[in-house]
Design a protein around this nucleic acid. Structure first.
Length: 300
DNA sequence: AAGATTTGACCCTG
DNA sequence: CAGGGTCAAATCTT
C-alpha cells in the first residue's frame, strides 16, 4: 500500500477530481450541442476527463498496470479450495452510506465485479469495488441501482472507506463530504420548459452505468438555455449514513432525505478555498470553449 | 497483450 | 431454500 498520503497529494487529488467534474460538465454541455458541430471540442473535453482519471489514478498511488486477474492453474479443483467468502453483514465491514444521485459518478474509479437481478426490483444491482483493491488493499465497495420510481436517479450504497487515497483521515473525510455536496446536481439554465430534471434528460443513460462508461461519461444532466437564461440551478441530494447493523435493510429501505434544491447565479460549487481556480475555470467555460484554450499544461 | 466487463456459478445468511 | 454478495473464466475492448 504505497498510496500518497501527504497533504499536498491530498489537495492535488481533490483538485484533479474537481477538474474532472468541470470537464464532465463541459462535456455534457458540448454533448448537447454536438448537433451544432462541436464534435471536436467534445473530444477535447473527453480527453480532459481521461487525463484527470489518469492523474487521479497516479495520485492514488497505484501503478496503471499489474491488475491482471490471477489465473487458477487447477481450474475447477482450485475453485473447490478457494477461501470461503463472508457476507458483508457478518464481516463487520464499515457502515454503509446511502446516496441518491442523478449520476453514478463520484470521482473515484470503480471496477465492476458483479451484477444481480434483485427480486421486487425492476433494475439490476451493480457491484463495484475500488480499482485499487488489489494494489492498495482498498476495501471500498459500492452498489449502484437505478431507482424504480425515477429511472434517472441512482441509489448508491457505499461500503468501507477508501484507503487507496487515505492517510489523512481529516482530509479524506472532508473530501468525501465535499464529494457528496458537489456531485449530485442538475444544471438548468433557466429554460422555460420547466425541465423536470428527472425526466427527459438527454444525459441519463440508464443502460450505461457500468464501470467504463462511468469513468468516461458525463454525469450531469444539463438543460441548455433557450431564452438566454443564465441561472445555474443545482440540485443537491442529501445523504444519510446508516450503521452497518442496518445494512441488511438494503439501500431501498435506507432513509433517504428529500432533495433540496438550491439556485445560484454562478456555478461556484462550494467554499473550498484552495479550489477557487477551478470555480473560475468553470465559470469561464464557455469563453474557454470559444477561444480554444491551450491544454499543454495539463498533459500528463 | 493487457486490462476491463460480463455472467454463470458458488457461497453465505436468514 | 431463497435471496443476495462475490468470484473468476470467458469475452470484449483498447
Amino acid at each position: 500500500m504505497a498510496a500518497l498520503v501527504t497533504p499536498a497529494a491530498s489537495v492535488a487529488s481533490e483538485l484533479v477530481a474537481r477538474g474532472r467534474e468541470s470537464a464532465a460538465v463541459l462535456e455534457a454541455l458540448l454533448d448537447d450541442a454536438s448537433t451544432q458541430g462541436h464534435g471536436g471540442i467534445r473530444e477535447l473535453a473527453a480527453e480532459i476527463l481521461r487525463c484527470c482519471d489518469r492523474a487521479l489514478a497516479a495520485l492514488h498511488g497505484a501503478p496503471a498496470t499489474s491488475r491482471k486477474r490471477k489465473s487458477e492453474p487447477d481450474g475447477a479443483a482450485a475453485a473447490q479450495t478457494r477461501p470461503r467468502r463472508r457476507m458483508r453483514a457478518s464481516s463487520g465491514l464499515t457502515a454503509a452510506r446511502v446516496e441518491k444521485r442523478w449520476t453514478a459518478e463520484d470521482g473515484f474509479i470503480w471496477r465492476k465485479y458483479g451484477q444481480k437481478e434483485i427480486t421486487h426490483s425492476k433494475n439490476p444491482r451493480l457491484y463495484f469495488r475500488c480499482t485499487y483493491k488489489h494494489d492498495s488493499g482498498c476495501p471500498a465497495t459500492r452498489q449502484v441501482q437505478q431507482s424504480d420510481d425515477d429511472h434517472s436517479l441512482y441509489i448508491i450504497t457505499y461500503f468501507g472507506d477508501h484507503t487507496c487515497c487515505q492517510g489523512d483521515d481529516g482530509a479524506v473525510a472532508a473530501a468525501e463530504e465535499e464529494d457528496v455536496k458537489m456531485q449530485p446536481f442538475v444544471i438548468n439554465f433557466g429554460s422555460a420548459t420547466t425541465a423536470s430534471s428527472t425526466s427527459g434528460s438527454p444525459w441519463q443513460n440508464s443502460d450505461d452505468i457500468d464501470g467504463r462508461s462511468e469513468i468516461s461519461r458525463s454525469p450531469q444532466a444539463v438543460c441548455l438555455p433557450e431564452g438566454g437564461g443564465d441561472e445555474l440551478r443545482v440540485k443537491v441530494t442529501k445523504v444519510e449514513t446508516t450503521s452497518s447493523d442496518s445494512q441488511t435493510a438494503g439501500p431501498t429501505a435506507a432513509h433517504l432525505s428529500p432533495s433540496a434544491e438550491v439556485s445560484c447565479a454562478s456555478p461556484a460549487w462550494d467554499p473550498l478555498s484552495i479550489c477557487l481556480e477551478w470555480d473560475q475555470f468553470v465559470e469561464s467555460s464557455f469563453d474557454f470553449v470559444s477561444e480554444f484554450i491551450n491544454f499543454d499544461g495539463i498533459v500528463l
